[in-house]
Amino acid sequence: MVLLLLVLMLRLMTLLQVVISEAICAAQRLKAMNSELQNLRTENIQLRSDVAHLSTTYDQSAFVDEDEKVLFFTGLPTYQNLVLFTFLSPHLPVKSPDTFKQLMLTLMRLRLNVSTTFLSYAFNISIATASRIVTDVIDVMFIHMKPLIIWPEMEHLQKTMPMQFRKHFVKKCAVIIDCFEVFIERPSNLIARAETWSSYKHHNTVKFLIGITPQGTVSYISNAWGGRVSDKHLTENCGFLDNIVPGDLVLADRAFNIQATLGCRMAHVKIPAFTRGKSQLAPVDLETTRKIAHVRIHVERVIGSVRQKYLGGDITN
């Protein structure tokens, strides 16, 4: 009888030790779970803060009096230049994100040349939505900003003609023209691939004709053509000549051999003298070439400004 009681007591003690051990383990697990829960709460609070910060990073209020920030993200020099937003906002799609963020997203794409994947994370939207916003906003910008490029009357040009133009090219210079190319991805379509191949750049490109006034303002920009097209063909077929009136003078590079075409319109073109087959230029041709180069630098500066501000430097002239 006594032996049986001893055996029962031993078993009870063993069970008690097991229960105590399990209780200790359970307490440790509970403590670990409480610690993990606290960490998760802290992380959740931080994530909420980060999301809230991201949601306001590109709000319009975040750019007020932040000219350096505006310049970095958009290429526009000051916040006041973002009145562009008020001009375009009524025409932008009404959807998430708001219209200001749609404009910012597009300007960042043009200015910084970042991927739509990056923009999707930055604005907390899908990649497809980011890509669609860029396409939609660029269409709106083209439709509503293209009319802002105006071909001025010669009378207005003559009143403010810079002195170097008055000195070298009398007062009839209407426009300085040049072409520039923008690199694109190689098209999958074989015909498009051939039409956009630039033998000069050894890359697939689209080409534009740009014209500026002697005062340095853009007065003409053509639609995009395949990089294969010559400067001469582009100039004669893009609609540029519809702006030329009798007596106008056009300054251009050697690639623009359009004397006959402009002659039919009783206008003139000045291009640098050709050196092919000549050991050296005649003094008169050399002086004329210097004068043309001296004033054509303005169109190069305009193209260079576009290159520095937008499309990540992918613009080449």
Rank of each mutant, 00 (worst) to 15 (best):
R11V: 13
M13N: 11
T14I: 08
L15G: 12
L16F: 07
V19W: 11
A27S: 11
M33R: 13
S35N: 08
L37P: 00
R41H: 07
N44Q: 09
Q46K: 13
Q46T: 06
R48F: 04
V51W: 07
S55C: 14
S55N: 15
Y58N: 10
D59Y: 12
Q60W: 12
A62G: 07
V64G: 04
D67T: 06
D67C: 04
E68A: 14
V70M: 03
L71N: 10
T74R: 09
G75E: 09
N81M: 06
F85Q: 08
F87Q: 13
L88N: 03
H91V: 00
V94A: 14
K95H: 10
K101W: 03
K101Y: 01
L103Y: 10
R109S: 12
T116H: 14
T117Y: 14
L119R: 10
Y121W: 11
I125G: 05
S126R: 01
A128E: 13
A128V: 06
V137H: 04
V140E: 11
M141T: 11
M141R: 09
H144T: 10
I150H: 13
W151S: 00
W151Q: 01
E153M: 05
E155D: 07
H156S: 14
L157Y: 08
Q164E: 14
R166A: 00
K167S: 08
K171M: 04
V175N: 02
I176P: 03
I176V: 14
C179D: 06
E181V: 04
P187M: 13
P187A: 13
N189E: 08
K201P: 01
L209I: 02
G211A: 12
I212A: 04
I212R: 05
T213F: 04
G216K: 11
G216D: 06
T217N: 11
Y220K: 07
I221N: 03
N223L: 03
R228A: 11
D231S: 12
K232T: 15
N237E: 08
C238I: 02
D242P: 00
N243H: 11
I244P: 09
I244A: 12
D248L: 05
V250I: 15
Q259H: 15
C264V: 02
A267V: 08
V284G: 02
L286E: 09
L286H: 12
I292G: 02
I292M: 07
R296N: 02
K309G: 00
